Simulated scan of single mutants.
Amino acid sequence: MIGAACALYAVRAGLDVVVVDRGPVAGGTTGAGEGNLLVSDKEPGPELELALLSSRLWREITEGRHPDKGRPPGRRFGRAVDSRAVDARAIEYEPKGGLVVASTPEALTALTALAAGQRAAGVDAVPVAADQLLELEPYLAPGLAGGVLYPQDAQVMPTLAAAHLLRASGARVETGRTVTGVLRGDDGAVRGVRTERGDLLAPAVVNAAGTWGAEVAALAGVSLPVLPRRGFVLVTEPLPRRVRHKVYSADYVADVASDAAGLQTSPVVEGTAAGPVLIGASRERVGFDRSFSLPVVRALAAGATRLFPFLEHVRAMRAYSGFRPYLPDHLPAIGPDPRAPGLFHACGHEGAGIGLATGTGLLISQTLTGKAPDLDLAPFRPDRFAEEAAP
């Protein structure tokens, strides 16, 4: 998804783009995501600023608006650039809003404080009293202390979204082609990439490899400490729409911000346009272990039924897992790498990559073309970890 968004905005900025992927489109972390476009789970700071920018850009993409709309459609590699809107229905874009609920008065106090800071940063966060929760979600469990409604939260089907953004970009897409090296000249500047099917020469290379971003960085001779953080999603049978918003426990925000390597679960429940209900969320650092874990899936089911008791009688169709690209300070790496001129990074978004993709893509395109970025990139500097490790 990040690579697709970078391609979209880079082509719109007038650049020729080749997207190289060792697998199929969305064959990695993107295809294992829920498709969340969230502002609700971000604390005030750089990531929330990026989420707000991305939220606006997702709306613009589905409405057919973009920063250089006045520029006539061009051609890239002999292909017409599609400057039309990405069909919201085709990518299952739903601006349905998010509802964060607190089970205790103490949790509600903490959630209310977080929402106040988010409002000051530009988030639309609406307090919801305990007796109003069932008006928003009639099937919620009784006895909850209250919550906060986030109208800006939305959802897409990530595999479809990545494919449609790539199509709309007009970029050349090389799937099933593995990057085996990053080419650098005598002056240290990046000259392109080496693949098993030959070299691709370019004055700029964008590392949008997600959870495998550390491997691509190493090919260029630089360090980027991206680690995999495994998560499972439980998928129910198709249902009539009973869950109207993305609904999750206030504990989820703390889990997202945690540095713990051990298993953490907090209930996250949302309906989809296709009918199934998606149930999360779990986090654990176990390397690239894809083993199925029945205890984790049971914990997800238990958390979901605590929020929505009707789910106890619903069949689960399947469960799948994926690896979030985790960086130690929970901020992605976005922008040029001064250690390898011509190398740009756009990875390490952890579980927020789908939502943050559009903002990341725009920022990368702006830096590639020498424009002032819409956000300060200093907090996202790819070499910030090298500075911390220096004596």
Score class of each variant (00 low, 15 high):
Glu135Trp: 04
Leu201Arg: 13
Arg244Thr: 07
Met157Ile: 00
Ala301Trp: 03
Glu350Gln: 13
Glu60Val: 02
Leu219Pro: 11
Pro267Trp: 15
Pro341Cys: 12
Pro332Val: 13
Ala202Gly: 12
Ile279Asn: 10
Val235Asn: 05
Tyr252Ile: 11
Leu111Trp: 01
Gly198Glu: 06
Ala333Arg: 15
Asp329Arg: 14
Glu137Asp: 05
Ala121Gln: 07
Lys42Asn: 12
Leu224Val: 06
Ala10Val: 03
Val247Glu: 08
Gly303Tyr: 12
Asp337Ala: 14
Phe288Arg: 12
Pro203Glu: 12
Gly262Glu: 08
Ala85Met: 01
Val25Ile: 10
Leu114Pro: 00
Thr265Phe: 12
Phe385Gln: 07
Thr358Pro: 10
Val19Trp: 04
Lys69Phe: 01
Gly351Glu: 12
Ala141His: 12
Arg381Ser: 15
Arg89Asp: 13
Leu327Thr: 12
Arg306Gln: 09
Gly335Phe: 04
Val268Ile: 14
Leu227Ile: 04
Pro276Val: 06
Ser54Glu: 11
Val314Gln: 02
Arg184Tyr: 02
Arg194Val: 11
His245Val: 06
Ser291His: 14
Gly188Pro: 04
Leu136Pro: 01
Leu48Ala: 11
Val18Phe: 10
Ser365Phe: 00
Gly181Asn: 09
Gly170Phe: 04
Leu362Thr: 04
Arg76Trp: 06
Ala302Asn: 13
Thr175Pro: 08
Arg290Leu: 11
Gly342Val: 13
Thr358Asn: 07
Gly188Tyr: 10
Ala218Met: 00
Arg229Pro: 12
Leu362Trp: 02
Ala208Lys: 01
Leu108Ser: 01
Gly361Val: 05
Ser223Ala: 15
Asp383Pro: 09
Leu307Ser: 09
Ile354Val: 15
Arg79Asn: 08
Arg71Phe: 02
Leu263Glu: 09
Ser266Gln: 08
Leu377His: 08
Tyr252Val: 15
Gly210Val: 03
Val286His: 08
Asp131Arg: 05
Val86Thr: 10
Asp153Ala: 03
Leu183Ser: 10
Glu106Trp: 01
Ala5Gly: 00
Arg285Met: 15
Val268Trp: 14
Gly23Cys: 03
Phe323Met: 12
Gly322Ser: 13
Gly64Asn: 02
Ser54Val: 06
Thr367His: 05
Asp199Glu: 15
Glu135Asn: 04
Ala161Phe: 09
Leu278Gln: 11
Arg194Pro: 01
Val235His: 08
Ala110Tyr: 03
Ala386Val: 11
Pro309Met: 03
Arg283Gln: 14
Leu111Gly: 01
Ala352Tyr: 15
Ala254Leu: 10
Ala357Phe: 04
Leu311Thr: 00
Leu37Lys: 00
Leu108Met: 03
Phe308Trp: 09
Ala389Phe: 06
Lys42Ile: 04
Ala161Gly: 03
Arg65Asn: 11
Leu294Ile: 14
Ala85His: 02
His66Trp: 14
Ala260Asp: 07
Ala390Phe: 03
Arg242Lys: 01
Leu331Gln: 14
Val101Trp: 04
Thr30Asp: 04
Leu219Ser: 05
Ile334Val: 12
Pro73Leu: 03
Gly188Glu: 05
Asp153Arg: 06
Thr369Gly: 04
